[in-house]
């Protein structure tokens, strides 16, 4: 399987993630789309790692996963805290810092 096929799939998944982040109102779905984008990048890294026969890419994927896990834990805690205060998770209704 040539590497371009994997890169194309990863690019399509990343584009869908971008579209979701920019259009959805629900903060949880926005987070899901960020996860999708991180995974598309991971797929690219593993594809290149296999292509150039170098393991560094796979180690990098490992670190990306760690950062993603930390981000989700803190992000979801933030969403829960915001929901307690404002009773909403819609990003267009959370405008506390808007001026």
């Amino acid at each position: 399987m040539p590497i371009e096929y994997y890169l194309i799939v990863a690019a399509i998944l990343f584009s869908i993630g971008v579209l979701g982040v920019l259009t959805r109102r629900n903060a949880i779905i926005v987070f899901l789309c960020i996860e999708l984008m991180l995974n598309a990048v991971n797929l690219t890294l593993v594809a290149f790692s296999n292509h150039v026969q170098n393991l560094d890419g796979q180690v990098f994927v490992f670190f990306v996963m760690i950062v993603a896990a930390a981000e989700v834990a803190v992000g979801l805690a933030l969403i829960v805290a915001i929901f307690r205060q404002k009773e909403t998770v819609y990003v267009d209704e959370i405008n506390l810092m808007k001026w």
Partner: peptide, 17 residues
């Protein structure tokens, strides 16, 4: 209504896509 409301941001999002 599950998508963001303003038309401007929808157009912008589609361009980024």
């Amino acid at each position: 209504d599950r998508f963001t409301l303003t038309k401007f941001s929808r157009v912008l999002a589609f361009i980024a896509f």
